[in-house]
């Protein structure tokens, strides 16, 4: 789902980055956010709501709505729509609200 050619913009993608989502290996590019890399790989469901367990994806993509909270490298409640992708990142669907360690 990457845009390869665009009539107005040229996307200068950085180097490829490997990361893991729920244990499976995925690939994104330097400059991606976690959400953009996951979406490009076809992952739309980023988690489930706490009470009604409804699927959740991002809504605003710029850090306003917090609909995209995930656990990243063990840290819960990361807004993945603005968190930049890094090599080897462990991204997980968040279970529960997260615990203060």
């Amino acid at each position: 789902m990457r845009i390869e050619e665009h009539p107005i913009l040229s996307f200068k993608r950085g180097k490829k980055i490997k990361f893991y989502f729920d244990g499976k290996e995925y690939e994104g590019f330097e400059g991606d956010t976690i959400a953009s890399a996951l979406h490009a790989a076809g992952v739309k469901v980023l988690g489930h709501s706490h009470n009604h367990k409804r699927p959740r994806g991002f809504y605003c993509a710029i850090g306003n709505c917090s609909s995209c909270l995930m656990t990243v490298d063990g840290e819960p409640n990361v807004r993945v729509c603005i968190e930049k992708l890094r090599e080897g990142m462990m991204v997980e669907t968040q279970k529960g609200k997260g615990v203060l360690k």
């Binding site: 953009s36 959740r56 994806g57 809504y59 993509a61």
Partner: peptide, 24 residues
């Protein structure tokens, strides 16, 4: 209205025009 795939129009702009990813 909370289903994934329902996005703000600005979010879709960000996804497409900043990250070069199609929303669908």
């Amino acid at each position: 209205n909370d289903l994934p795939g329902i996005y703000g129009a600005g979010a879709v702009q960000t996804l497409m025009n900043i990250y070069g990813v199609k929303p669908g």
